[in-house]
Amino acid sequence: MTPPMVEARGLFKRFTLPRHSLFAASRTVTAVEGVSFAIPAGTTFGVVGESGSGKTTLARMLLKLEQPSEGQLLVNDQDIFAQTPAEERAYRRLVQAVFQDPYGALSPRMRAGAIVTEPLRALGVHRRAADMKAAEVLELVGMRRDAASRYPHEFSGGQRQRIAIARALSVDPRLLVLDEPVSALDVSVRAQVLALLREMQQRLGLTYLFIGHDLAVVRYLSDAVGVMYFGRMVEIGPARDVLRRPAHPYTRRLVALAAAEAPLGVARLGGGTLPNPLSPPSGCHFRTRCAFADARCAADAPALREIAPGHNAACHHLDAIAAGTKAETGPLLEEASRQRAV
């Protein structure tokens, strides 16, 4: 079997928050907690989760915008946080990114052509060659050639996102980090951009890390999916399996909510609360919103375990839930004292 293009091994990322006062202890938030996954070359790994799940931090580490506190992130078997300057330059050429906001991603004072050629110019490519490449990639993403001489405000949101994709493709990368690339777009345009991303992957053999919160969109593009909840990977496996036969109670709820025919109120909780990232609940983080939580969930954190080939979930009650024999005991809330400390 060929080695994966991207491999994360036990990644942690902790942020230290500024102190409340001079004498207060400094507080840390764990944004990513022991996350491991692998992305085979030419495939898409989708990461889903709600805000605060740590999925964006994951993307930023792969882009080397953040450094992990622990663990390794390997790309083509090379630890990207132990690179020589020459290796780093090569890596910058290998990986590119497309972000959510088509308005923030393009500098308002640069023409589309200059925006698209910026990564090339940073690599020292000559201006003439860069301009030719810009025209080529702009055409590739379905923009007219004359777009190069116009400013971002002259384009619609969908067109801007196309320019952002063209920019990412200009250096012939092998790996694209897509952080909610279609969330800010209108529905009809979203479909165009998703189709474009899929086409680019097929034509250029790209590898994608796709971050999203819309499950249907993630499933459209992804081969494998990881579900994150408050920093932990709670379920991971082939996209079809995870999103059609979800095992973890959290994934089950997300999938139920995403169904096109879902009635109002499928996610109704019996008074569950979102955990406070500063003092996450003991044991399983999801126990404060889970219908199946019991004492064991508060006592230890469940580890990922395999339920089908390549399909893992982290829950103590997987079998009972799957068999439908687990009683719904309601969420296990935090002690009142910790609640007040918010």
Binding site: S156, G158, Q159, D186, V187, S188, V189, R190, A191, Q192, L194, A195, L215, A216, V217, R219, Y220, L243, R244, V255, A258, A259, A260, E261
Partner: peptide, 24 residues
């Protein structure tokens, strides 16, 4: 119709998605 078709449906076997061509 186009708007509804451009929303991918998660419950289908294969997720298909039809874009409305062109711009607003």
């Amino acid at each position: 119709r186009g708007l509804l078709a451009s929303v991918p449906r998660i419950e289908d076997d294969e997720v298909v998605l039809q874009a409305i061509p062109g711009q607003v």
